[in-house]
Amino acid sequence: MQRFIFEAECAAADAPPTSVFGVYLVGPTIYSFGSEEQKRRYLPGIRSGAEFWCQGYSEPEAGSDLAAVRTTARKVEGGWRIAGQKAWTTEAHFADLMICLTRTNTAVKSQAGLSLFVLDMQAPGVTITPVITIDGAHSVNSVFLDDVFVPDEALIGEVDKGWTYAKFLLNHERTNNAQVHRSRREFERLKAAAALCIGESGRPALDEPGLRRRFAIVEQKLGGLEVTVLRVLIDQTQGREPGPEASIVKIIGSQLQQAITELAMDVFGAAAVVAPEAGGGETAGWTERHLFRRVVTIYAGANEIQKTIVARSTLGLR
C-alpha cells in the first residue's frame, strides 16, 4: 500500500521509473528466500540504487514456456559453472548483477531441476549483444554465458527449487505490470496535449467529438483499474500473497496502456508518424512509446497465458 502511494507520487511528478528488477523482483526474492549473508550483501545496493540488476530468465527456446530453460549450472570446486544463452535481457548492458535461472538437474522433469543464481555481469565469459527493438531503441540484449563461474554463495535458496522462487518473482512482476500510476499520468499528459494540438478539422483535438468520447472511455477504464489494483493491494495487506487474481490487473492494465498510446496516435495524426529528430515538440516520445507498447501484452506472461490462468485457477474451468 505504501508502495502504491509512493508510485502514485513518483508518476505524478514524472520521476524516472525506478529500475524494476532490483526493487520489484530481486529484492522480494532475496528477502523471502535468500540467506542472511545474501540479504546483507544485496539488499542495501537495491535500496540505494547503487547496484543495477537484470533478469536472466528467458531464452530463445524458453519464452512462454519458461521451464524449458536450457542454460546449465554445473557443480565445480567451490561453486558452479553456468553455460547457455539468455534472451531479451532488459538493461543487461547497464546491469551489475543478473538473477539467473538455470538447469541444475537434467534427470528430472522440466520445472523440478531449476535453480536461481546471482551472477556478476563483469565475470569472465559474459558476452552481451544488443537487440534493437521496433522503436529503434536498445533496451534488450542477448546474453551469452560461456562457462561463467559463480561461487557457492551465489545460489539463492536450495538447489533445484528455483522454479518455486521464480514463480514467486513472476507474480510480483505481474502486479507491478498493471502500471496504473504511469497510465494515469500518461493519460493526463495526453489530455493536456490534446487540448493544445490542432486536429485535422482545424480545431483542438480535444474538441473533436469522436476523440472526446474515446478519452471518456479510457477515463472509465482507468478508474476501474485503479480500484481493482487497490482491491488486490488490500488482499495483500491482509496477508495474502498475490495469486491468480493478480493476473487480471496485468491483463486489464496492459490493454489500457495500449489504448492510451493508440489514442495518442490519433490525437497527433500525421505528426506522430514523423521520426522524432524532425518532428520533436508535442509528439516527442509518444510514437516510440506507442510502438514499444505492443510488448506489454507479451512479456511478463503473455495475455493469452494470463487468461488461461484466470479461466482455470480463478474460474475453475476444466
Partner: peptide, 27 residues
Amino acid sequence: IQVSGGIAMTEDYRIGHIYKRLQVSAA
C-alpha cells in the same frame, strides 16, 4: 505481433515493419 511474441518486437523481424507501415498509412 502478439502471437509471434518477443521476436516481433525486434527491428530485424518483418512483422514490426508491417505494423509501422500501416501506422504511417493510417495517418
